[in-house]
Design a protein around this nucleic acid. Structure first.
Lengths: 87, 87
DNA sequence: ATACCTTACGTTTAACGTAACGATT
DNA sequence: AATCGTTACGTTAAACGTAAGGTAT
């Protein structure tokens, strides 16, 4: 886990797309793609779902949203709830 | 900031020396030295004081002790208190 | 002399950018 | 076609190990 990766994730969730995030951070889109991928691998958790419209946070990522102090909750979360059944 | 750097710091504070930490993590001592140095640079805060007896956490690092869930507070903290005067 | 941490230097891994690609609307 | 994310690949920076160097007990 690198601090930069969290910045990339934050920007992506806030703007709603990797492209926008890359533009804002003045880096290339592939960097966002690769680093978020690596972060997900390291954590063993999928953080965002990709689509032609952009990216959306998974439920796991909504926790990060709080951590990262995102002002506005970024769109809608994919998974509505974690279903607190068996741990 | 890298997650590995926090692991190095945690081991160093828990064991009380870079040597012990390196041994436990099965890496070289210079790696601990360099990575803790870099972490301190990045944060702009000195985290440990070095001595012939080993390392001791500064007051700043005692916060990290809690974060890192160190069971036992590692020895004694160097600075007794931050003196909550002007911020 | 022994036990620490630090500096120097070469090797290897990984982050990053450019370019090319696939998918969806 | 336009917009968005992914894969491929070469370049550059950084992590790591080995070896040598100070400092204090």
């Amino acid at each position: 886990m690198r601090f930069a990766q969290l910045r990339y994730l934050e920007a992506a969730l806030r703007t709603g797309s990797f492209r926008q995030a890359a533009k804002e951070l003045d880096i290339s889109q592939p960097t966002i793609t690769n680093q978020v991928q690596r972060l997900e691998e390291d954590l063993g958790v999928i953080l965002v779902t990709r689509g032609a419209k952009g990216v959306r946070p998974t439920y796991a990522a909504t926790g990060y949203c709080r951590t990262l102090s995102l002002r506005s909750r970024p769109r809608k979360c994919c998974a509505p709830k974690p279903a607190p059944s068996a741990a």
